[in-house]
Design a protein around this nucleic acid. Structure first.
Lengths: 269, 269
DNA sequence: TCACAAACGATCAATATCGATCATATTGCA
DNA sequence: TGCAATATGATCGATATTGATCGTTTGTGA
């Protein structure tokens, strides 16, 4: 077996299990302890994994891998203040008792902070959102069924006949990767799939996007502007972008950051 | 088992329950008291948990109460050692890659601790089980859709057309309130509903009950003995109860509590 | 208060892992 | 093919970890 192949095997093993032993790798690659040790040492200096007594461990997450996974947590801190302000406005649209749908995403996740005191039926396809609402609020939480995708932090069923079809809400809240004249754009096909399932289950579609999203482009179009009832964004939105929404008959809410929110990395575009 | 892996297990356990004993960790990791003490001491100086007499406690004060709410957590400490031993045997029945269904419950919840190193498609209707597997393992987690019932900690859809129908597994694991000649008994109508949805989605039905359940009676019968493939219980089971199962053609696995049962007692009755 | 059991800390032997070294095998190249 | 460079496997002394034992401390209940 070649060095590269062993490295590949070791790395993939250490991805699956947070910690692997030298013995396990010996069995898996059918090579000697000495070789595996050398491999681990080499991968260690390459910072591809961390060498520990007895084997190796994954370098990236010293603690949790699943839920607070990479894509979610890096994205989470991005423009946090804006996202919070936007999320606050989103929750302000809701009345107690009124059922809503919250699509998974880092911006929509911020809504949970303002939902703690509420009492509403909330349907979501996001595991972290459900988890937080369950632990920190009295809302009725409903979850879509299916496989939990760790990367995207959403739950998605490959079948059409899931509970999603049985829930109908006043509003659906969702984020997006981009928003332009052609409509709502998303980057991940999996997210598209999840969103398209929910999009028809509510009267009004409310889109939460920070203003930088107006300058993002993506290849995957989810739906046209006409389908959107309301857009909530921050005050970085430019006039022509606001005009575009107005022309399409989309209501616009501009969220101002509160005094309590940090006033630092305000607009970058 | 390796130091890092034990540390991971201990930390994950201390997150599930605010306090864990040295004995529990000995059982969970199959290592000696001395080792566990050293581990706890090490994690203590790393400030990853707080060392207390008899075991360790979470470093952060009681954070969440919502999810691990009363009905779940009081039940959880009840016969904990037996439940764990039973759960261990249950996981021993599984092979990697083999899809299984885990019905929600305090006994079945214990299975998660032994599933951390596995790689299996796991379908469950229990939010805590899904949460734990997601955070502490690499298994593929699938969740049933519907409303999350806080009391019972399960997810249930009032509709028949959910994803549940699309998942078929080798085995389904479930607990029960009672087990007698008439079959499997449950106390909560909601649980009955949840269980009946899943019960036909697997080849074999494996029931996890501590021996006290043989003397419990309940008014709600879920299914007859003939439907059950295997019962896993502790050594408190009496002869006539064992005979009853034998007569009904149900395989019986008796989990021994304290012995370091590294060698699985593979009796395929 | 006292007796008793559980938990603890220290110690030591057994075991596992490591690092270094050398012999052997494979690969690359002239 | 022959040779050098590199990779691999094996051995062995050094070191770290583990589990068992034992005496001591701590908590509990009569």
């Amino acid at each position: 077996m070649h060095e590269k192949e062993r490295h590949r095997i070791i790395l993939s093993a250490v991805q699956e299990k947070p910690v692997v032993t030298v013995q396990e790798m010996v069995e898996l690659t059918d090579s000697s302890e000495a070789t595996i040790r050398r491999d681990i040492a080499a991968l260690h200096v390459q910072k591809r994994l961390r060498r520990v007594r007895g084997g190796a461990e994954a370098i990236s997450p010293p603690q949790f891998i699943g839920l607070a996974g990479r894509p979610f947590s890096v994205n989470e801190t991005l423009n946090a203040a804006q996202k919070r302000a936007i999320a606050r406005e989103a929750v302000n649209l809701c009345k107690d008792g009124e059922p809503i749908i919250i699509n998974g995403g880092t911006t929509t996740f911020q809504m949970v902070h303002f939902l703690t005191g509420r009492r509403m039926p909330i349907f979501t396809n996001s595991f972290p959102i459900a988890e937080h609402l369950l632990k920190h609020s009295k809302n009725t939480v409903m979850l879509s069924g299916g496989t939990i995708y760790r990367e995207q932090n959403i739950i998605l069923s490959p079948f059409d006949n899931d509970v999603t079809r049985n829930f109908y809400a006043r509003r659906m809240f969702m984020g997006a990767q981009g928003l332009g004249p052609l409509g709502l754009m998303e980057g991940d096909p999996l997210l598209i799939q999840a969103e398209q399932k929910l999009i028809d289950q509510a009267d009004e579609l409310v889109v939460l996007v920070d203003s930088s999203k107006f300058r993002m482009r993506s290849s995957l179009i989810l739906c046209g502007l006409s389908r959107i009832a309301t857009v909530i964004t921050d005050d970085g939105i430019e006039d022509r972008e606001a005009k575009m929404l107005e022309t399409a008959g989309v209501a616009l809410v501009v969220a101002r950051k509160q005094s309590s929110d940090k006033e630092e990395s305000s607009l970058q575009a």
